[in-house]
Design a protein around this nucleic acid. Structure first.
Lengths: 121, 121
DNA sequence: CTGTATCCGGGCCGATACTG
DNA sequence: CAGTATCGGCCCGGATACAG
């Protein structure tokens, strides 16, 4: 899977190592609000494939941020929720969210300008 | 270089997109303290190659987090410093740093518990 | 509903050598 | 001192199909 045995020079690398996956940030933000089932997450994330979603969730689980609860029934039901360590990230995530909003606004003009696809020649 | 035309589902993706490079977190943390010259950063990061360091710095610059100031002299001198947007990340980075410390600590404790748990019974 | 199994392309990042 | 240039490996993440 994902090897995480490296030596860190700085504590922030630990956090980044754990949070830097294509969908992990959003997943963690969603789970701050409430627990989610696998399919609900898939719907929220819209364009994620089940394989990749499973990967991201497994890694978050291995890193101790979320728990996976299986309800033995048909059809199956699996609920993902935050561990205390995952909840400890809430304030951090909110700050990242805020910064992202303001930064996107700043760069937002650039993004909007290239909405027209007739750009490259 | 690095294409950043994607559509974001969530503001946090902007922040992660900008901060998630192999050395970007540490670089930003260092620059919170003081400005750095290229060689100083290279020394601090220890195992980074000049090519990769340049890449990371260029991307941070493109994203508006840092500025690159060239002093026209021989030998050359280039100083990297934070923009206001980069400075706005300070609190966020500190929180990530703190969480990283405690999480790393937690994993350390688990290891210790596994070894010493037999002594308690 | 909640996943696996396979295949695969791209880009991140490193090693090494060279330059103004 | 502060970078480029070139080559290449690895792994992340997507597409698609299948399964309990």
């Amino acid at each position: 899977m994902k090897e995480r045995k490296k030596q860190y020079f700085h504590p922030i690398e630990v956090t980044l190592d754990v949070v830097c996956g294509k969908w992990k940030g959003v997943i963690l933000c969603l789970l701050q609000e409430k627990d989610y089932r696998f399919g609900e997450l898939k719907d929220q994330l819209f364009s994620v494939t089940p394989k990749v979603l499973t990967q991201q969730l497994r890694e978050l689980e291995e890193d101790g941020l979320i728990t996976r609860t299986v309800y033995p029934q048909v059809p199956p039901k699996v609920v993902y929720s935050l561990t205390p360590y995952g909840k400890d990230l809430e304030d951090t995530l909110r700050m990242m969210e805020k910064w992202g909003q303001s930064h996107q606004q700043k760069v937002g003009d650039n993004f909007n300008e290239e909405v027209s696809e007739a750009e490259l020649s």
